[in-house]
Design a protein around this nucleic acid. Sequence first.
DNA 1: CCTACCGATCGGTAGG
DNA 2: CCTACCGATCGGTAGG
Lengths: 226, 226
Amino acid sequence: MQTPTADTTAARRPRGRPRKTLDERDDGNRRVELVNAAARLFRRKGFDATSTRDIATAVGMHSGSPFYHFKSKGALLYAVMDEGMRSATLRQTAALEQACAALPDAAALLRVLVRNHFDILLGPGSDFIPVMLYESRSITARQRSSLAKLQSDYESVWQPVLQALSEQGRLGCPVKLARLLIFGALNWSAQWFDAKKGASLDELADAAVALFIGNNPKPPGRRVRP
Amino acid sequence: MQTPTADTTAARRPRGRPRKTLDERDDGNRRVELVNAAARLFRRKGFDATSTRDIATAVGMHSGSPFYHFKSKGALLYAVMDEGMRSATLRQTAALEQACAALPDAAALLRVLVRNHFDILLGPGSDFIPVMLYESRSITARQRSSLAKLQSDYESVWQPVLQALSEQGRLGCPVKLARLLIFGALNWSAQWFDAKKGASLDELADAAVALFIGNNPKPPGRRVRP
DNA sequence: CCTACCGATCGGTAGG
DNA sequence: CCTACCGATCGGTAGG
C-alpha cells in the first residue's frame, strides 16, 4: 500500500522515464489513482488547502512525482472536474434512456433526473462533482469555458422535461429560473447531506420533486397508466 | 486614501501602541475597513487564495499591520462571518416585524423572507453571507458551533411560516426537508446571479415562491384582502 | 501602525 | 517515478 511495486522480490524498480511497452500498464492506473486521491482531498480540504505533497502521500508517491503525470496542480484539478462531468453525463444519459422507454410522463422523468443527480452528488465515490461545483474559482477562464460546454450538455437534458411540465401548468415559474433554482436546491445538498442519518436518496428525491411540482393540477397517485 | 493620516501637515504619526484616548477614534474605523476589505477579497478569491498582505494593501496598510487589529487571519475570517450573520438576522427581524403587522398570510410572509434573503445574498455590499456560506471549511470547530447558533436564530424564523403553509397543504414535502431545499435554491443564486442582467431581485423572489408553493390549493391572485 | 525579519511550506524542476 | 533542490510566498512577530 506504500510502495508501487507489489512484487515479493526485493528488486528495485528501474529508474528513468519508463518506456511504453505493452506489459507496463501501471502508467494509466497511477494516473487514475492520483485523480481519485485529488478528488477526495480537494473535496475534504479544498483545492488551495491541499498540497501536491498531500496527494502524493495519499497514493504512496514522493513529493515531486505527481508532476510526472500532471504538468501542474491546476491540471490535476481540471482532470477531476472534467472526468466528473463526463461520468455524470454518461450516467444521466443511461438513466434517462432506460426511463424514457418505460414512462413517458414528464413528472416521472423529472423524478429520474433528480434521483440520478442526488446519486452523482451524494452517492458512493461522489467527490468529483462537488469539487467541480465548489472549486471552480481555481481554474482558468479557458478551462472554465471548456467545462461550461460539458455542463450545458448535462443540463440540456432537463430542458424538455421542464418545458413539458411548464406547458402542463405544473411548474410555478419560468423554465429558465426553475432550472437554476432546482439545481440550487439539489446542489446545496452536498453541504448538509449526511449519508449515515436522515433521509435516503430516494426520500430526498421524492421530497424535492414534490416541492417543485407539488400537488399541482394533476392530482397525486396514478402517475403511470398500465 | 493611501495613508491613514488626513492632515495637511507633514507630521509623522506617533509610533508605539496608541493609547486609548477620547480624541483617537481611528481605531474602530480601521478595524471596520479591514473587515470590509477582507469580506470583498475572501468572496472574490477565496480565503486561502487571499493573503493578509492583499487585505493590508486594500486598506493602505503595510503587511504586518492587520495583526495589530486581529490576532490571526482566521480571526479576520470569523469576524466577517459573525458580522454578516448578525447583520442578516437584524435585517430579517426588521423586515418580518413590518410585514407581520400588515399581512398575516403565510404565503406573503414567505415572500418577504425570500425577498429579504435574496437582498442579503445578492444586494449591494453583499459579500459577508456568501463568504460565510462558502468558506466555512476554513474556520475551527469551535467557531463553527458559535456560528451555528446564529444561523439557527436566522432560520428559526422560517419555521412557523413553513409550518403554516404545510398545514394548509401548500407545501409539497415535509417542513424540515423543504427548509433545506429552499435555502439551497436561494443560496445557490450567489453562484449564478448577475445584477447587471436577467431578472431583478423582485422577479427572482416571485419565481422562487411560486416554484415552492406554486399554484397549489389556494388559487393565485387576491393574496391580500383589504 | 510601520520596519525588518523569520521559519515553514509550497509548487515546481533537473537529472537520472 | 525518486532525489535533491530552488525561488517565492505566506502568516506571523519583535520592537519601537
